[in-house]
């Protein structure tokens, strides 16, 4: 079963990450998730400014140094996990939910309805994600909620396409023809054969879609279109620290590395699950 994934780069990633790598990635995600739920377990106040210790380098006291207001960058990164991850997860949920619905309807309906749905989804998915999200934000105005919806809507076409293609393949698979041979009714076919085989790969796709959403969210926040200051969102932090790059690289580079680590971990874990999943499906 071949499945087209959201990001072509990760879809065809031909990299076999060794098990310790997968374990490290899982661990990192677990930590990031914990931080998103209970940031105070790891770090102190992300908003406490300290004018006496502005733009200090990484040290034992401030692991990631301090920013232009003397706030602890590490604390901000830890607290930022909540913003960045929840934006990503919420957007992915919107995209996956609507994508499944649209994809299934298109894949199961008759020619004309399918044509109409698929063509519009195709046209939408041809657009760069960023542009779709920007269009949405231009209309709805910047802010966390519109960021979530913008990213979610922008990602819908990917999921809808995958689910529709998958539905098509399964619907035409010989085993569905065979179910016809037993006189199975349409509803039974859909419930017992089509749905499970279509939805099987979706969780894995969602993990990889999540990395896409987080990356996009960071980019848009970087442009100042996400959560407004002083909220410690990762993209926004990188943007704020940018002005002090020549004297304090850590204020933007270290949060950036955390974003990268999150994306890499998601990709590695997603690929690992996908490989396992495909291994189960194919000899």
């Amino acid at each position: 079963m071949t499945i087209a994934l959201t990001r072509p780069g990760t879809a065809r990633l031909n990299l076999r990450v060794p098990r310790p790598g997968v374990a490290a990635a899982t661990l990192f995600l677990a930590v990031a998730l914990t931080a998103a739920i209970g940031p105070s377990l790891f770090a102190g106040d992300p908003l406490a400014a300290d004018p006496l210790h502005v733009l200090e380098g990484p040290s034992g006291r401030h692991w990631f140094g301090t920013d232009q207001l003397g706030r602890d960058v590490f604390a901000r990164v830890v607290h930022g996990a909540r913003h960045s991850l929840s934006i990503g997860v919420a957007a992915t949920l919107i995209a996956v939910g609507s994508g499944i619905l649209i994809g299934l309807i298109a894949g199961l309906s008759h020619r004309i309805a399918d044509e109409a749905l698929s063509r519009s989804v195709d046209a939408l998915s041809a657009f760069p994600l960023v542009l779709l999200a920007l269009l949405f934000i231009a209309i709805a105005g910047p802010g966390t909620t519109s960021l979530i919806v913008a990213i979610g809507v922008a990602l819908i076409p990917h999921f809808a396409r995958v689910v529709r293609a998958q539905t098509f393949v399964v619907r035409r698979a010989a085993y569905v023809t065979h179910a016809v041979a037993f006189g199975a009714a349409r509803s039974r076919l859909v419930l017992r054969h089509v749905l499970p085989n279509v939805l099987g790969p979706v969780p894995v796709l969602a993990v990889i879609g999540l990395s896409e959403a987080i990356l996009l969210a960071a980019g848009l926040s970087f442009l100042g279109l996400g959560p407004q200051p002083p909220s410690p969102e990762w993209g926004a932090m990188i943007s704020e620290g940018r002005g002090y790059l020549h004297i304090a690289w850590w204020a933007s580079v270290l949060p950036g590395l955390v974003v990268t680590a999150t994306i890499i971990s998601l990709t590695v874990v997603g690929r690992f699950c996908q490989r396992r999943f495909e291994g189960r499906e194919i000899a």
Binding site: L13, G256, I263, I264
Partner: peptide, 16 residues
Amino acid sequence: TELVLVSTPPFLIGIV
């Protein structure tokens, strides 16, 4: 390297 490249936000690459 390619995995790292496609996983890094482009603006971070620029900043570095």
